[in-house]
Design a protein around this nucleic acid. Sequence first.
DNA 1: TCTGGGGTCCTAGGACCC
DNA 2: TCTGGGGTCCTAGGACCC
Length: 419
Amino acid sequence: MYALVDCNNFYASCERAFRPDLNNKPIVVLSNNDGCVIARSREAKELGIPMGAPAFKNEELFKRNGVHVFSANFPLYGDMSHRVMSILSEYTPEIEIYSIDEAFMQMKGMERLDLYEYFIEIRKKVLKWTGIPISIGVAKTKALSKVANRIAKKFPDRTKGVYIIDDEIKREKALKWLDIGDVWGVGRRHAKRLKAININTAYDFTELPDTYVKKYMTVVGLRLKRDLLGFPTIAMEEAKVKQNIATTRSFEKDYTELLELKERVSTFAVVCAEKLRDQNSCCNSIMVFIHTNGFRPELPQYSKNIVIKLPFPTNSSIELSKFANQALEKIFRDGYHYKKAGVIVLDITPDNPKQIALFDNSNPKHVPLMKAIDFINNKHGQHSLKLASQDPARLWKMKQEKLSPRYTTDLNDIIKIKV
DNA sequence: TCTGGGGTCCTAGGACCC
DNA sequence: TCTGGGGTCCTAGGACCC
């Protein structure tokens, strides 16, 4: 059996874990720059606040209903995620961390356990140790465990947050209940096409001929169909190094000068380099893009990206910053109001062993230098040391007016208890 | 005034090889 | 009249996930 464990309203729950006064109150968490709603507590969902709603369009609604608004605090969410996952890891040797708030657990060899009781216990422990409520779906395949998880979430009172699909009757009933658009792996496009031919539920989908599924949804759709039928087809995946790493941001205001953009791009490249070193990788290509603000159609629009093939594989902040700025100079045009930029490192290869170029003119001194920089930044706080091409004052330059403390990752922010 | 950020996989078609 | 067969690599675009 597979279990899918999913944290309920994860970001909102993280904020609430340290603010018990917000129990049963509506909470929303905003994206970077305090832009859009990216998480809602149950109470906020019940107020009809849609996912992705721009914050500035909903200020009235927030105020009227006493909604507690938070800027995204990713260091907090990342750390809380880590805590939840490490508890789950104690209950099975085979776990796949699928996203910041979800994990698949394979329960091979545990057939004789009372799985319902087992997961109820896990749920209690996670709640007690972290303050995060979770829902758990269990079934014969990964896709079906996703379905079971939806049922656990939808009917918390009846399921106590754990639902198991363990026979054919439950499987059929669940699939007939689930709207096709809510099936894992069926997005907006496929849902629309399927509904047009009167395929409305997950069950209808499993009745389609293989040839049709293959034609319109490729082998991906075919695998999904098999998995929903109860034949394990989508396998557990082991943790892999990333194939692409992106660092991109919208700005808090428009930029018009090349110099301003260079500073941003330099910072993004440095962060990409840090992420590369963190997974012991180098990149062989780098992409830089810039955009004007698409929400202001009255202004002239421009967007462009460029990929540069590097002369040698590297994860040096200095090299990547240099190449990123060379790339930027090639695509920058005067006379536009830029709102967003990003750096993406591609063609990622291992740091060791490293394939060196025949005439490799990379500077070998960068390796110990980066080690020293990482050491210092780890010890004295992220980005204590920066390149001179970066703004010494600020890292992201984002609007973050409702930021909560970093309760679990910064000693200065640790929670205070009255005595 | 103000609208996020970060990933994966698959396929078709073009360019090239012998 | 009539013009082969078998490959690889790369890229862009589409679809999906959280």
